[in-house]
Amino acid sequence: MLALAATSIAILSVMALALARALRADTVYDRILGVNMFGTKTALFIAVMGFLSGRPDFLDIAIVYALINFIGMVAVLRFFEYTATDDTQNNKESS
């Protein structure tokens, strides 16, 4: 139980760091990289959280989150591959 709690805290702080990296990045691709890491860690965090509270039903939510994260990533990248050609610097992208 202690190991699960420690792992969830560790994943949570990794998520916070990734989000901080995404917020103070200088290109839009760095932001997406940080957000992607945040998303995959969130799916893992939900799984660990389900075990911590003794309700493995949470795993379904983790599966759905992993899928949505991937689809969202690809959608955002599709968008920026064709719009951010020359001046990538002045984009204000979030989520």
Partner: peptide, 10 residues
């Protein structure tokens, strides 16, 4: 996909 679009983005 990320690396590819970064590469194409210059």
């Amino acid at each position: 996909a990320l690396a590819k679009s970064a590469r194409h983005g210059g």
